[in-house]
Design a protein around this nucleic acid. Structure first.
Lengths: 188, 188
DNA sequence: TACGTGATGACAGTCCCTGTCATCCGGGTC
DNA sequence: GACCCGGATGACAGGGACTGTCATCACGTA
């Protein structure tokens, strides 16, 4: 348990997820996490802004992935196409490690504070997508509305993907939601 | 400053908003709020679940208002019409006391924790709207997507209403966003 | 006037999170 | 090999949010 064991941050992430799964988020104290990781509380808060953030460490990379997808979209793409490309990129990444994603989501869904954090992460993603589209020449209002709509589709499709016993794939569910969206707004 | 001054809850709400405006949310301790209201900390937490909730005391009534609007929509209404009716009801209520609403929103926008709380309140509103639509016979997926889309429109329109120097009314901005939404999804 | 009920006060305690300073490890310099 | 420097960690004190528990108080009612 030397002071200099490698990958302190990774050990904290792992210990936290394990304990959140075993005993729930609220019942887990930061002291217990650092104890399992062989570190001190102070070090935990040097790596993560708060007790919730440890579950969202990967959200930054996911956001960059989505922004890159928008930037890489062909010039012929409509705003909705750009968002769809971003959602494809994100969902592909999630499909890869479905087991971990599901476990993590179970923890989040069981706690209101964590759902709050999840929502603000999605809001940040929406803003980033809107910015990326604006850089592609999309008008302000259109960019904002399209990005937010994309997040809606992501939320609904992801929810169904989690609830389903692995029947349909995430990209498939996203496509279905996008179609339903079209009939919804067009039905008048 | 007797122990039995009337309207303890109201005094707490008022004192909290005042102090949040004067010094910001983070700089305001619950002790300061209860001091101004002539009560104790323990009493604050009997009336409000946490320090943030005091700013969202009215969200329950707003949600009921929206749900009632959906329930009262004519049978000929499409899902999108139902949501539009709900947004009209909500925005009318906000227009009434624009001054207070703007002041409160300034406080919320300045703090990440408060934005988180705002987002989960909107998510709860979305769920309530979807439930109300389902009771009107709307299919599960359609209800969910339409409700979420309505919240998107509300968010974007409200944001523009706050940022604007009172040019366009909130119902007007909502209508504009709904129109832009139609052209967006229909543009392909 | 006595009593019951609900709201408030008083107090101790836990946990999250922060500021500060000392300590340690690894790597580069001479 | 001795020296040193920068980044990461430990140790400690402390504030503030929130909770549990019991005593106390005001008010309506019999």
């Amino acid at each position: 348990m030397g002071r200099w064991e490698p990958n302190a941050r990774g050990r904290l992430e792992r210990a936290a997820l394990e304990l959140y799964v075993e005993h729930g988020f609220e019942q887990t104290t930061v002291a217990k996490i650092t104890e399992r990781a062989g570190l001190t509380e102070r070090t935990f808060f040097r790596h993560f802004a708060d007790k919730r953030e440890v579950l969202f460490a990967g959200s930054g990379a996911m956001q960059e992935l989505c922004v890159a997808a928008v930037a890489a979209a062909p010039d012929s793409a409509t705003p909705l196409d750009m968002v769809a490309a971003a959602l494809d990129a994100a969902s592909a990444r999630w499909e890869e490690r479905g087991e971990t994603v599901r476990k993590r989501q179970t923890v989040i869904d069981a706690n209101a504070e964590l759902r709050e954090r999840e929502l603000i992460k999605l809001a940040a993603l929406s803003t980033a997508l809107a910015d990326a589209m604006r850089r592609r020449g999309v008008a302000e209002l259109t960019a904002r509305l399209t990005a937010e709509t994309g997040i809606v589709v992501l939320k609904v499709a992801f929810e169904r993907w989690i609830g389903d016993p692995g029947q349909r794939s995430l990209p498939q569910l996203i496509k279905e939601c996008l179609n339903a969206l079209g009939t919804m707004t067009g039905s008048r």
